[in-house]
Simulated scan of single mutants.
Amino acid sequence: MKTLFLISFAALAFASPAHAQPVAAQTAVSTAGLDLGTARGVRALDLRILHAASALCGTPSPADPRGRQDYDQCRADARATVAAERERLLANARSNAPVALAAGQ
């Protein structure tokens, strides 16, 4: 039986990369439809996490190198925030232990 897992995380999003005003943001990443016991499923989860982090952090202006740095740091921070929950999900998938996770900040 498949269990639906949700990972919620908070990150800093830059409302305007030129101004780099941090604001709290939150989203959820679902593992529905993924087989986390396979490399393909893990890659798909990582891509979902990356897309969620990118959405949280906004879009930097190509003309603003500092904004791009802030954007890259924001994505790295968001992915680091969810790393422990990601590892827990993968460990549970390897052991076939169904669990429900809800983590957030």
Rank of each mutant, 00 (worst) to 15 (best):
E87L: 11
A32K: 13
S61N: 15
R94T: 09
M1R: 03
A78R: 02
R66P: 01
P65R: 11
D77K: 13
T38G: 01
A102P: 01
N96V: 04
A18N: 04
P22Q: 13
H51A: 14
G41T: 01
R86G: 01
L90R: 00
L89R: 00
I49V: 13
S8I: 07
D77N: 10
D64M: 03
S54H: 07
I49L: 15
P65C: 14
F5G: 01
N92P: 00
R86Q: 12
H51Y: 06
R75T: 04
V29S: 06
S8Q: 09
L6M: 12
P65M: 14
F9R: 02
S61K: 11
T81K: 08
A18I: 00
A93Y: 02
Q21A: 08
F5T: 00
G37M: 06
A25W: 05
F5P: 01
C57K: 03
R75I: 12
C57I: 08
V82N: 01
A18S: 14
A24I: 13
L90C: 05
A102R: 12
A78D: 02
A93S: 08
R79E: 15
R40Q: 15
T81M: 08
A28W: 13
R48F: 04
S61V: 11
A11F: 03
D72V: 05
I49M: 15
M1T: 04
R94P: 03
Y71G: 04
A76C: 02
A15Y: 10
